[in-house]
Write a protein that binds this DNA or RNA. Structure first.
Lengths: 113, 113
DNA sequence: TTTTGATACCTAAGAATGTTATGTATATTT
DNA sequence: AAATATACATAACATTCTTAGGTATCAAAA
């Protein structure tokens, strides 16, 4: 099952931040593969969504970047700076709370009639 | 805490369908209040989001409506039809699965360095 | 009795955030 | 040699919210 795309909306930034918190540094393509692996291909990040998201997080001042070359091929590594680490905690806690609320709503028992 | 608005995206339809599954019929304003109550005001549905969503679900052929008057004030009740009940099951199961995947991602332990 | 707040519907402009499509280039596998 | 994987990026478009505005009834407070 691949989730319908609306579900990813709103959670992408938090997922990316969490991965960066767990790994010193990651590059874009690596993130797409890692998410695919971790979720058994249920979540497939598109590059059209991921790269703008990374740029946006960078512009928010949460990430720092280093460019590396593997042969002639570029890699742009991203890592959390201090503000990014703090923001990541916030977002994870908010998303966790939201998930709990959602779970509660979905688990409510029918009180039909 | 009120969740930042991106989080609601993609889950609103499922929340509405679930409420309709649990209650024979509900009207729009009632849904906003019910969600506010159930989530201790953490999720506040805006009317600008809810009404178009209800219209969209209706156009997808998932809902039936009845109009009732309380004095001179209109109420438009929505309820699931057969297709709606089936779709609701699908969506709840997808969202539940997605929530599990997300929880897994968020619970991953740091493997820094 | 007038005003405020709650109830109850609705739409439209704008923002945010995805998808899909496309472009460029290198490296590896078949 | 061709296809697939790696690796970056942007742009047109779609979806789905928020914010703001509109209309109207009813109840409670000033």
């Amino acid at each position: 099952m691949i989730y319908s795309s609306e579900l990813i909306k709103g959670t992408l930034k938090t997922i990316v931040l969490k991965l960066l918190a767990d790994n010193n540094k990651m590059y874009g393509y690596e993130i797409t593969q890692r998410v695919k692996d971790l979720t058994k291909e249920r979540i497939q990040l598109t590059e059209g969504a991921l790269y703008p998201t990374l740029h946006s997080l960078e512009q928010e001042g949460l990430l720092k970047t280093e460019i590396e070359y593997i042969g002639k091929r570029m890699r742009k590594y991203y890592s959390l700076n201090k503000a990014g680490a703090a923001k990541t905690k916030e977002r994870i806690s908010e998303l966790t709370d939201f998930i709990n609320t959602l779970s509660f709503l979905l688990d409510l028992k029918t009180k039909n009639a």
